[in-house]
Design a binder for these strands. Sequence first.
DNA 1: GCCGTTTTCGGCCCGACTGTTTTCAGTCG
Length: 586
Amino acid sequence: MAVNNQEIAIRLREIYQLMQLAGKNRFRAIAFDRAAQSVEALNENITDYIENETLTDIKGIGQSIAEDIKQYAETGKIEVLEALRKEIPPGVIRWLDISGLGPKNIVKIHKELGISELAELKEACLDGRVASLEGLGKKSAEKICASIEWMEQFENRCRLDQAAAIAKPMFDFLKAQPGVEQIEIAGSLRRSMETVGDVDILIAAKKSFITPLFDAFVEHHLVTEVLGRGDTKSSIRTADRRQVDLRIVKPEQFAAALMYFTGSKEHNVLLRGRACKRGFGLNEYGLFKLDEGGNTNFEKPVDYESEQDIYQKLDLHFVPPELREGRGEIEYFEKHETINLVESDDIRGILHAHSTWSDGKFSIRQMAEACIERGYEYLGITDHSLTAAYAGGLKPDEVKKQWEEIDRLNDEFETNNISFHIFKGIESDILGDGSLDYNEKLLEGFDFVIASVHQNLTMPREKMMSRFRNAIKHPAARIVGHPTGRLLLKRDGSDLNMNELIELAAEHNTAIEINANPHRLDLDWRHGNKALEVGLMSSINPDAHSINGIDVMPFGIKIARKAKFNKERILNTKSADELRRWFVAQ
DNA sequence: GCCGTTTTCGGCCCGACTGTTTTCAGTCG
């Protein structure tokens, strides 16, 4: 049986979650989580390790877990996992995503109330059963209920990276089928929304190919459920409950259909209104000339070949899919040919990465070498600061030792004529009063400081703002990290006046990062217009805790584009020398 | 269950906050 790293990591993490719930030894449970993390961070394919019997070379995997992995590769099952699944009903695992509710109380509620579904839990919160349990009360029940409601809002949505991971194999598979003349991903995934509902795939094919194409689609090995099967559209669900819609249109309809199904709804409404004013009708089948009575012959669309052609007929330049949100893009592309958005090739270095000095999985050298391999010119190491004890935050004497290591590595690069530089950075906690984590003298010693909030994210808005004001005004702070602290589909971020924050940051020449981790994508792209207006600088940062963690950069770049950032306003498009100058300029 | 310049046992991320309590357990980052 062919297995991949992701799949193994998912099973190991499920064991971890179930062990927590089953009240097994905490450290034994954590061992499975650690093993899952190691497998995820692995650069090689785990099957190599299985075949060579070298699984225990992987940090965090010992004899026992190695056996479990082998068992899974051979039989598709893991004994421990199967036993745990019998003990804990699958519905209860989802409760772990409820913020404010942990394993202990989950088990208490599950056992004492005899419920195991999310909907039942919400019911029990509302009717007072949860509040009546010992150790829980009215406030706890309210908090759980609010969190469930928040989760329900996003029930059928997934993160951009999850959607992309499902779309890719489907897209590649369909593209290779006979009769496919054109194929594109449409919908919110094409627009690079941070969360995606359904994955939409659009194909242009002649009539005779339609049935075999839909057949191939619904029989794909990832499909676990066929939700619908028609002549123009079929929908399926995958094992992880994601929905994929496939539409097949006539080749001559493709451009209009792509435009229509890419959306957004708001963008489409504006386009249709614009078409109307110019004597056209626009829908998913094409662009049509209207007569004076507003009628048209739908058999005879206006000639066009691409989205670009359709935009042109509407007196617009091509609007990149990321910007089709009905937020001023029509007015802009009426006047301008292009917006010059930042591109992957513009990125020259990495500015937010952790190492084994705090909670990263790889040494500074390994992270630097991974950056060199990926063609980057520099790396800013930003481990956690003192207060982040849970993440192994650096004590002042450790900071100095880390600097020595960085100096040695930089010397080594220079001696060997490797044009690569490691910047000494830190991700300093913004403390409750907005001060940073080390004394002024130590802070001055860093090349740059990323200031991030990690604790007390739920302070009232005004308190939170005064905290950020102090941090932004701090001369050492050059970048604000993940401003709201949100975790997409899991936790709302801090309540902030983002407009004020952006203005203040621009005024103090402090950048606000676009955290490229697909769980965060924070700064939110919706603040792009304000950021553009005041000339805010940003930096697209992977917040990498492993080598693989560097490879989330494309998600950050997409969000930066969506937020209308050009190359000039992104710090890590600068050369190392330019950056050094920017860090010291106030 | 994993790991080890502390190596076959005894640790393992630890301090703060919250809500429930009346001295603390559970959760979070």
